[in-house]
Design a protein around this nucleic acid. Structure first.
Length: 332
DNA sequence: TTCCAGTGCGGTTGGGTTCT
DNA sequence: AGAACCCAACCGCACTGGAA
């Protein structure tokens, strides 16, 4: 009498297609043969492995697999690294972005779990990337709510940066009112005027956000990706924050929560130091260039994600040696 | 001690005015 | 029309000081 062995049941798919088939076999050899036939691949040297983690199934291991285990049929020479393979497929999305978008949309439609909704939503947002187009006509949605005078994304982003930096100047200027001493006040005013001229000449440093600028002048890549530079007291961003406001409207709006953070703080340190330095001194004695750099340039500004924006006191002060113009030493 | 409201600081947005 | 500018309003966080 032959011993009748009950066939085992599996789900099988190939490495490059997600479609799964139910299959039954008594031995590994039989399974491979059937699977090759089913998936229409050559049977020489084929192997099967676990979908989950790529473990290659041996005849002995085969006997211990539970029913309905998901397997992948591998033609000779191919390997399967499980989910990593799938993730890579998703990330290499240039070809099938449209397919992926509709797939993600479909999943999202009847997804209830907030966590999964969030992940699918993020995926969709990232897939719907229009960063390569620049003009208003080509990406109307991006420009929704933006003044009609802006024709290109770069022009708007540049303006956005200019406004932020103009705001800093305005704040420096606003401090004038609170200086009680008339002489100091008028000298302070003169410094503000010089700062304003310098800043104007530099076109308010709007190039920082402008991807069409030369790379030394901009903070982003030429595609428009900005990377968080990390909190003022950190060397880099441990969260790996990054954003491309050129990509879609949502990213553009979200980018407004990113901050240009003064390392040496404008209000707590720079402005009071400047006012103090002018007590009993003339505007001409001040190293205006130093203050300019602190207030308005990358030398003292870090672009940070709101999470990396520490609003508490930075406890950094201006370099006392740089406040005044270098006094000419009397040479004997 | 804990809680809460106020204030100051870091920002942005949006609407309006003035000047060119 | 576009730029520059001004102002009021808003948000979230940190800090503080007084009330419970």
């Amino acid at each position: 009498m032959h011993k009748i062995t009950k066939p085992k049941l599996f789900k099988i798919r190939s490495a490059n297609q997600a479609k799964k088939y139910g299959i039954a076999a008594v031995t590994l050899k039989e399974l491979i043969k059937k699977a090759c036939h089913l998936l229409k691949v050559s049977s020489s040297g084929g192997q099967v492995c676990l979908y989950e983690d790529g473990t290659v199934v041996t005849e002995e291991y085969f006997q211990n697999l539970p029913d309905n285990t998901e397997l992948v049929l591998l033609p000779e020479g191919q390997s399967w690294n499980g989910l990593v393979h799938e993730i890579n497929q998703v990330l290499g999305l240039d070809r099938d972005a449209d397919l992926l978008i509709s797939a993600a949309k479909g999943l999202l439609a009847d997804e209830r779990s907030p966590k999964r909704r969030r992940i699918l939503g993020d995926l969709l947002r990232n897939l719907r990337d229009n960063s390569e187009v620049e003009s208003r006509e080509d990406d109307k949605d991006w420009f929704q709510g933006i003044d009609a005078r802006f024709k290109t994304k770069s022009a708007y982003m540049k303006y956005n940066c200019e406004s932020r930096i103009r705001g800093y100047l305005k704040e420096v200027d606003g401090y004038t009112r609170s200086i009680p001493n008339a002489k100091t006040k008028s000298e302070y005013k003169k410094v503000v005027e010089i700062l304003a001229e310098k800043l104007k000449a530099a076109r308010y440093n709007g190039t920082y956000f402008d991807r069409s600028e030369r790379d030394v002048h901009r903070l982003c890549t030429e595609e428009g990706w900005f990377t968080c530079q990390g909190a003022f007291d950190e060397n880099n961003c441990t969260f790996l924050h990054s954003i491309n406001p050129y990509g879609n409207r949502e990213s553009r709006i979200l980018f407004s929560t990113w901050n240009l953070d003064h390392l040496i703080e404008k209000k707590r340190a720079i402005i009071p130091t400047l006012a103090e330095a002018l007590k009993g001194n003339k505007s001409g004695d001040i190293n205006v260039d130093y203050f300019y750099k602190l207030l308005f340039t990358r030398e003292n500004l870090k672009l940070v994600h709101i999470v990396c924006h520490k609003k508490g006191a930075h406890e950094l002060s201006c370099d006392s040696r740089k406040i005044y113009k270098r006094v000419r030493r009397t040479v004997k």
